[in-house]
């Protein structure tokens, strides 16, 4: 290895886990010892990465409190040193870390809160794409509706949560007292999206969530109607599905419509 490479490895090892070897490489002065000087880098590193996590996870931070949040950050930092060029992505594994690491795994709302906040962050700077308009769907001839399929907007994220994490987030955002954590046996479906640069989220009923997930997998309108028959009578299912579709379009959750396999009928 080059001399430069060895030096950089040693310095990095000092910053990451206070490895001693670096001390002899640094000049001490009457002003400040090598150790004091090196520690400026080591502590700045921690502060900077903790701050990045605080920015992405404000509700989780509020839920845990300063001290516990900082402890979590340190544990995460040890397990996941950043390999990203952009600090923006550093916190992406926090939800999985919380779900799989004791003692956090014992409090499932923490991982769900992290997943929810991360999804909002992803929606914030997801790719730009024009939203589908109602007139674009209306232009698809009736006979082509059964074969019609869609693509969701790139800023849309779906989550299934057992806890009331989104309500906790809402309380923190409004600076209200957070509600007590709850844990349901069956998860509730949530969708996070962006419209006109603003982030929105709401829950979805079971049938709507199923239909939306089917749409995102590329199901046709006919497939979606057939599947919805588990909850809706056959007589009303087409109207119900059209109603769901209208709601998604009006919220800006959809991007493209294909009038038949592979044919993009979107006009934007």
């Amino acid at each position: 290895m080059s001399k430069l490479g060895a030096l950089q490895q040693a310095f990095q090892a000092y910053v990451l886990h206070a490895d001693d070897a670096m001390r002899q490489e640094v000049a001490s002065t009457p002003q400040a010892s090598a150790e004091i000087r090196l520690d400026i880098y080591a502590s700045a590193y921690r502060l900077r990465l903790i701050e990045a996590l605080q920015t992405e996870y404000t509700a989780l931070h509020a839920a845990l409190g300063d001290e516990a949040f900082e402890q979590l950050c340190m544990a995460y930092l040890d397990a996941h040193p950043s390999s990203y060029r952009n600090l923006r992505w550093f916190g992406g594994d926090l939800s999985v870390f919380l779900r799989t690491t004791p003692p956090y795994a014992d409090t499932p709302i923490l991982a769900e809160l992290a997943a929810f906040e991360w999804a909002m962050g992803l929606a914030f700077d997801a790719a730009d794409a024009p939203s589908l308009s109602l007139s674009e769907i209306a232009a698809v001839p009736g006979a082509a509706w059964p074969a019609m399929s869609f693509q969701a907007h790139p800023a849309v994220h779906r989550l299934d949560l057992h806890s009331n994490a989104p309500l906790l987030w809402k309380a923190v955002d409004a600076e209200d007292d957070p509600p007590p954590a709850t844990h349901a046996t069956h998860p509730i479906a949530w969708v996070v999206w962006r419209q006109d640069l603003r982030i929105f989220f709401r829950s979805m009923a079971v049938d709507e969530a199923w239909a939306f997930d089917a749409l995102r997998r590329g199901a046709t309108f006919a497939d979606i109607c057939a599947g919805l028959c588990e909850w809706i009578s056959e007589l009303q299912v087409a109207q119900h599905a059209a109603g769901l579709l209208k709601g998604w379009v009006e919220s800006g959750m959809l991007w493209r419509v294909y009038s038949e396999a592979g044919h993009d009928a979107s006009r934007h």
């Binding site: 080059s2 001399k3 430069l4 490479g5 990095q12 590193y45 990045a52 390999s83 600090l87």
Partner: peptide, 21 residues
């Protein structure tokens, strides 16, 4: 430099002022 071995310290780490560097 900002890190080695695919780690990013997200800091502006000084270089040694050597011919090699």
């Amino acid at each position: 430099w900002t890190g080695v071995e695919n780690v990013n310290l997200h800091d502006l780490m000084p270089l040694p002022y050597t011919e090699e560097a």
